[in-house]
Structures are given as C-alpha cells and as structure tokens.
Write a protein that binds this DNA or RNA. Structure first.
Lengths: 254, 254
DNA sequence: GCAAAAGTGTTTTGTATACACCCATGC
DNA sequence: GCATGGGTGTATACAAAACACTTTTGC
C-alpha cells in the first residue's frame, strides 16, 4: 500500500470546534450558537467549522473565533495571555465514527479564555449566538423553570464543553491563565472573583491577596488604582510574565 | 455551502502516531521504527498509521500499538492502568499543512506508558523497531561518539515525542500513572526508580516511601515480598484504585 | 457615621525536607 | 562480617488556613 495512492486511505473531513469561556456576572459562561440546519437543527452547539485546505489547525480556530466574536486570538505557541488577545490552546480531538450522522468528521477542539468585554456577534453561518452559564448548558445548574433540563448540545458537544471546562478549572491552579479572563488591568479582588466563579467556591480574600502578590512575576502593579468595585481604592495590576504558578493555587474541596 | 456536498470541504488523511514510553535500565525510552520508504527513508520515526474508515481514534491507536509491540492497551476511557495492559491516552493533534510533503495529513498523537517487559516486534510496515533513550532520540544526551548528534526524527516527530515526554513527566506528579511503567507487582524502590528515571533526578528513598505508602488508595500491599533488588526483602504492591495523587509528588528543581 | 472592599499581621496546623538510625537479606 | 537496599523516627522549615484588625473610599 503506497501512501501516494489516494484510494489507499479513507478521506476525512476535519473541523475545529471552539470552547470559548468567559466569566459574566460571577458565572463561568461559554459561547453557544444555534444551529440553523440539520442535523440537530434548532439545537445549541459550539461554534466551529471546516479547516481549510492550506490552513493550520490553530489558524482555523483563530479564524472561527474572529468570525464568531471579533476576538483576536494570540499565537498559541506564544508566551500566553497578553493585552487585548484571548488565550487559545488546543483541547483534544474527537473522532468517533458516528459523531456526525452525515459523514466521517474528526474535530480538533480548541479552548479559548476571554475577558468579559465582547458581545456575541452573529457572523458566518451562526444564526444566533449567546453566552450561557456552563452549568445551564450542561444541565447541572438551575435552568429556567425548576427541574427543567435543557436539551443536550448538538453532536458530542456536551462532552467537548465538559472537557474544556475541566481543563480550564485545573489549569488555573498551576498557571497564570486566570488573568486571561480579566481585562488588561484588573484588581486582586477581580482576579479572585474569577477563581471563585470558575471553581464555584469561596476563597479567603486575605490569603488570596497574599498568595498572588507574593508570587514573583505573576502580577505587576501599574501604579493606578480604581474604586469600580466600591470600598477602598484597589491597586491595578497587569499580568506578569510568569506563566507557571509555583506553588499552585489550591482549589478547596467542593 | 451545504455540508452534504463532498466538494464543499477539503479531504484530509488522518493518522495516529504513538509515543510509547517505557523505563529500561534506569532510562526513559521511546519506541522508534525505521522508515523503509520515502519520505524520510531510513530515518527513525514514531510508530503510527492511517485511521480506518470506521474506526475510532483510540481504537486505531490501540491497533497500531498491538501491531508494533504486541501490547494490549486499556480502554482509555477506563479507570487507568490495570494489570497486563498499557496506559493509553490521547496526546495532541498535529496538522501543519506542510508536515507531510506528500499530502495533507492530520495526525492524532497518542501517549502509551508500558512496563519494561516487551521486546519490540517488527510488525506491519515497521521494518525494524527499537527502544531508544528519549534524550538520545532528541539529541539531548550522550549519543554514540562525543558531540555527535542523531538525525532528527522523521516529519514533526521530534516535537511530538518531546510533547509526549513532557506530558508523562508532568502527569506522574499528580496521578498514579508512574505505576503504568511497573510490572503488575512492584516494590516501593522500583516505583521510586521510575520517578527518578523519568525526571532525571534523585529522590530521598525514605521520604518517597512515606509519601507513597501514606497516600490512601495509591498502593495496596499484595502480602508478598521480594529480594530481586538485593538487600532486605521489600514488600510487593499493586496499583491501587486511586488515580489522582493529592497532594502531588513534588518534582525537585533540576 | 456606616457599609463595603482593600490590605496587613499573627497564630496554628499540616506537609516536605534532611538526616540519624535500625532491619533483613545475600555473599 | 559486610554491603545493599528496605523501612521508621524526628527535628526543622515553609506554606496554607483561619481570623483579628486597620485603611480608604462612597453614600
């Protein structure tokens, strides 16, 4: 069997799907789009699309992200979150032969962490898009009327979303990735509320403050202060160059 | 553009590549096969092959593993390493448009951790296969005569191997995966030498012993003892049900 | 003044480290 | 006996948890 013979291997369609996470009103939210055509017409799904013939996987993910949200993604091989760009990384690949009833599709899922700024923008083939709390999308939290369960996401997107959320939850433990959920300048309290929202726990503000300000290279003060959260003015910080958090932030038992 | 139209999306070849790691003679080794045909003819590469038309990605990886080594892989959605089976998990997906000069190939790399038992067996299209220390394969350690660098692996396999090694090194910190490198029954000292070989560091035998035997569910004593390492007889253990190690094993600074 | 959030100090507790020391075997 | 690895005990250092307390704003 020569690999040059195109009949020697089966052709696949390759797509990218995006788990785009942000923190809105103290809840971890994901971007969902409503499907306008079969299969799963009318159901919510993760944004995504076909990889082009001469396009890298990460480039395809960044293109889809821009089409859906207008967000610019950073070079994923780069040093991490930077002002104005969302963090993008590859998550995992899903290739069950029956995950798409139409044909054999292998989807390379990517994870995006973005600050709260953007409003979803219907672009490309996304008829409508919205931010929804991940607990609601996954049928774990309150959703509309009591006891009511939302319809599962299209395809295997429940699984993909769940994997992406788990990745984000564990990765902020030992990296500075939580800053990707914050605006370019933020306070220690705002960063703490990110951790609390993503993990769904309460953290001690005093110990948290000591921890993040005491880790060299994690936060760099900008000199400014703000009172946008009320109370005493808080110092503003920018994300430092350190990407690894050692020792890690400990996630309390649930 | 309807997804039903096969001309609407570009066709890809999808392969699986395997990073198969084991510990031999106190060195972390990977399975390499010599390529018998162009491109990169005569160069070492990671084992792998095309995913079949109706085959799941993990099933393709397990099939390639069996073809190359005779090893049985466990269901990767299962609870982890079990007697007689190697650990298999998805690593990452590599899809640069120019990674294969012949055509557009997306490769879903998988990571396999296996005990030292098996001898490589040339099967399938692998003309010859061997275990080689990863440092030598990646041109980082001693390799033959002094100053001599090995040829890079074929395609982007240096990068894939490097990612797989990094994944294994970090994952044994917070999981019980290191037991996948051990035979079904092993001593604490043997497990310690696995950590030392994978990380390339020396660990305090006394503290290591306390750590692993004091973590509930990590190791379960079989009742037997052995003197195969010399010295005082050591208790034999089997891997316990616990897959997560909390608090984690700390990797000393290099 | 009062509420709210920021920030500092202190005490306690758990865990890692370093290392002294004993145990049980092969030769 | 002696070398070799297995296993236990203990003092020290360090970091997290818990919480009292002060600071600086808006209203």
């Amino acid at each position: 069997m020569s690999p040059y013979d195109p009949s020697a291997f089966p052709p696949f369609a390759v797509t990218v799907d995006l788990v785009v996470l942000t923190v809105k009103r103290d809840a971890l939210c994901a971007l969902a789009v409503r499907r306008g055509e079969p299969p799963f017409q009318g159901r919510w799904a993760l944004p995504g699309g076909f990889v082009r013939a001469d396009e890298d996987l990460a480039a395809a993910a960044a293109r889809e992200l821009a089409e859906e949200t207008g967000l610019l993604a950073l070079d994923p091989s780069g040093p991490g979150p930077v002002d104005g760009g969302a963090h993008l990384e590859q998550l995992a690949t899903y290739g069950d032969p029956r995950r798409d009833p139409r044909m054999r599709v292998v989807s390379v899922a990517h994870l995006v962490l973005a600050p709260d700024l953007p409003a979803p923008r219907a672009g490309g083939d996304a008829h409508s898009a919205r931010w929804a709390p991940v607990d609601a999308l996954l049928g774990k939290g309150g959703f509309g009327r009591e006891g009511e369960q939302p319809a599962p996401l299209a395809f295997d997107h429940d699984r993909i979303l769940s994997d992406g959320v788990e990745r984000a939850r564990s990765k902020i433990e030992y990296s500075s990735l939580a800053t990707a959920f914050c605006p370019p300048e933020f306070t220690v309290g705002e960063l703490r509320r990110v951790y609390e929202s993503v993990w769904g726990v309460a953290l001690d503000p005093r110990n948290f403050h000591r921890k993040v300000t005491g880790t060299p290279g994690f936060l760099v003060p900008t000199g400014g202060t703000t009172t946008r959260q009320g109370g005493r003015p808080a110092q503003l910080f920018r994300a430092g160059g350190a990407t690894l958090l050692n020792p890690p932030m400990l996630r309390p038992e649930v």
